[in-house]
Computed example of a mutant assay.
Amino acid sequence: MDVKLLEAFRAVVDHRSVTAAAGVLGVTQPAVSTQIARLEETIGFALFERSGGRLKPTPEGLLFYAEANRVLSEVDRLATTTAQIREGQAGRLVIASHPSAAISLLPPLVADFLQSRPGVSVRLVSRHSDVVSQLLPSESFDIGIAELPIDDTAVKLVKYRMRCVAILPPRHPLVSRKVLTPKLVAEHPMVLPVRSQQAPTRIFAAFASAGASLNIVAEAEFFATLCALVAAGAGWSLVDPLSAASFSHLGLVIRPFEPAIVYEIGAFHRADREPSMLAASFLELLEGKLGG
């Protein structure tokens, strides 16, 4: 059934006049009369009777009006939802990420993303990097974020690199130093990312090249745990700059480290289809944060 006919019928009922309905709809009076006649022909019963020079809905017309009004309200709601989807203002976004990104990178980004999108909901799934990268190809999430390496045969991958920073307890002997090096921190107690992750291999290589020794007193899986250990005075550490910034309120002293210890992550989605408009908008926000 033509929605335009229902709209004309509703306007006539609401205004009790073809002329007034035509004005509201922005069409001519004959056009509205023709639409009402077409609608009556389609449904097989009269919708109006004339009373005192005005149109009065028949009993059948009143019943039909209630249903037509309900249908048009749903059409209006659909139009609004369609516009929201088109503009990235409605929908659900599922992001699977490794814990460091879930703790330090994503919370402020998601909050910023949601602030201007009241019709959007986001679900964050936190898993180890190898688990996240193995979830594709599946329908379980829209965007994946994990440490490199990532098998990019089934995904479209964007890689991001960042330099790790050294973090120290507030009263560490080296807080006066502007830049830390393997020679400076050698023998000072260190808390290290677990050796199954990418950072330790690069840390060991840097210290070996400098002929310096590491004094490892603890290891932890997550950068967040390393930050908490350092803040509690367990030792110094090397973490990604986002984690360091997220936990700076604990009193961490953050310093550049030479030579560069590079930390790499990747954001990805399925390669066999384009991301949703919502996912594309979030990936653009992520690029603005990590790109360059």
Rank of each mutant, 00 (worst) to 15 (best):
L286I: 08
H128G: 14
G292F: 08
Q89L: 13
A260N: 12
Q84T: 02
I103C: 05
T81E: 15
L168Q: 08
I85H: 12
V3D: 13
E264V: 01
L285D: 08
D240C: 02
A166G: 04
A206H: 05
E87K: 10
L214E: 00
L157Y: 04
V185H: 12
Q29P: 08
L114E: 06
F204Y: 13
P99R: 12
Q35A: 15
M162L: 07
D112H: 14
G44K: 00
V262N: 05
V179Y: 00
L278P: 01
G144H: 02
R195T: 05
L25G: 02
T80Q: 14
R70V: 11
P259A: 00
L47W: 01
P137F: 03
P59R: 07
H188V: 09
P189E: 05
R255K: 15
R163P: 07
H172K: 00
E147D: 15
H269A: 07
V125I: 13
V262S: 07
Q89T: 04
Q134A: 15
G288E: 03
E74Q: 14
G91P: 10
E74D: 14
H98E: 15
R16L: 04
R16T: 08
I254R: 02
V165R: 11
L168D: 07
Q89Y: 07
P275D: 02
A101S: 15
E264I: 02
L252P: 02
S138H: 03
R161H: 14
P193N: 06
V194P: 00
L25F: 02
K289T: 00
P275G: 05
A22P: 12
E7W: 06
V18Q: 15
R273Y: 04
A8G: 01
I103G: 03
L55G: 02
F9V: 05
P108F: 04
P193I: 10
G251V: 12
A111I: 06
Y160A: 11
K56T: 14
E41Y: 11
L226P: 05
N215P: 03
I150F: 06
V191R: 01
L184G: 11
S209P: 01
A224M: 13
F64Y: 10
Q197V: 11
W236V: 10
A20I: 05
G44C: 01
D112Q: 15
S248H: 15
V155D: 01
L229F: 13
